[in-house]
Design a protein around this nucleic acid. Structure first.
Lengths: 213, 213
DNA sequence: GCCACGGCTGAACGGACGTTTAACGTAGTA
DNA sequence: TACTACGTTAAACGTCCGTTCAGCCGTGGC
């Protein structure tokens, strides 16, 4: 996070993103104010209300993500998309904020996963054209499935951390992502390479059921 | 939910499970008391504190799940496991409660997903032995991956509902699950049948990297 | 009939927290 | 210099909410 020479408004915003990410959205305004080195009143003065502050944070995070995305348009694989932000230490607080928003059901999270799904669709399409990815009868659904797995692993990592095992994505995002991939990469690639079933009987049965129920 | 002729303690507990599931854990004690037709004081009198009430709810939900599980030991496929509870209207509040716990990072959620993963391991093993499921170099990781996808889809469904699209798992669990499978089943089966990649180059590359980094 | 006791209630207490308010200081302007 | 505008603060306000308290009521035992 950039530091001292920011306008108070920006300092508050950055402090809020960091504090919300670490402690969740129940973090008191006074704490955020203290983090930013200002009074609680000033926070309200600048943003109107705590909710409005959060909305501003959402907007800011979304903006940074968009910039970051278009800057890194040449990504390797779709499964790395979600981890990229977390890798750069500077963006770790943003990542934690997004995870919080995810858990909270915030509007930002909706946009964020929509973005991830869109990206996944694009990458999978590119993969198809390059011949490395199979074609699908439901490209959007497949992309959604891929993203859901990432999201689920993230949530489960947060749960594990709460239970004392592993690293919380809201605490040290970079380390958490690393640990997550360490644990899941092999099984994930295996699944995506060979599938789960030995034949297509489940799929066939479903397709048949779909035609005449 | 069973009704009138319960002891007040049990009525409070059931009301708490339902209310926590619907509104989250910030639901006021007074609201729960009202739901149960008692005073707020009595809630505390019986459970000591709101936290203790929640712990009792956790315990109760976990107990019911365990009973339910051992009663339905002859399940069809692992992907149906998570939806079973929600199907029976009576257990819908429990399911909503679990989703809340998942989003909240509660201890119950940890046990719950651990249970799911254990189940998945067992089912996949059974599938392997029956010849319908491929073998894996990391059975636990694969089970975790399968469960993570379910969890992720659930979280994303909650997000969609918050954004106005679709049904919230915490509102009408049964309907939400149905909708979720409608949207995801085809892509999921496709993935689990044929995989995502056309060849094993990604997997090979990872295995090679793992041996000599 | 009286007492004790447990279930139960309504009112009150106290803390946490978002927000409001009045005032202060400083920089820019006439 | 006087006036204005704005960034800023400390204190106070009001509300929500978990929890406590004093007492009421009905039941079972003596």
């Amino acid at each position: 996070m950039r530091s001292e020479d920011l306008t108070a408004r920006a300092r508050i915003r950055d402090a809020a993103v960091a504090r919300f990410g670490r402690d969740g959205f129940r973090a008191p305004v006074r704490t955020i104010a203290e983090d930013a080195g200002v009074s609680a009143g000033l926070v309200i003065h600048h943003f109107g209300s705590k909710d409005a502050l959060r909305a501003t944070c959402d907007e800011h995070v979304l903006t940074v993500i968009r910039e970051q995305k278009s800057a890194a348009i040449s990504l390797a694989s779709p499964s790395e998309t979600i981890g990229l932000l977390a890798g750069v230490q500077e963006y770790a607080p943003l990542f934690a904020y997004i995870v919080r928003s995810l858990l909270d059901g915030g509007a930002l999270a909706g946009h964020f996963v929509d973005g991830l799904v869109d990206d996944a669709v694009a990458y999978l399409k590119a993969g198809e054209e390059a011949g490395t990815v199979r074609s699908s009868a439901d490209p959007a659904g497949r992309a959604r499935q891929v993203v859901a797995t990432q999201v689920g692993l993230l949530v489960m990592a947060q749960l594990d951390a709460a239970a004392g095992h592993g690293i919380a994505p809201t605490e040290s995002p970079a380390a958490a992502i690393t640990q997550l991939y360490d644990r899941a990469m092999l099984a994930g690639l295996e699944l995506y390479t060979h599938g789960l079933f030995t034949d297509s009987s489940y799929l066939d049965a479903y397709l048949e059921y779909k035609e005449k129920p």
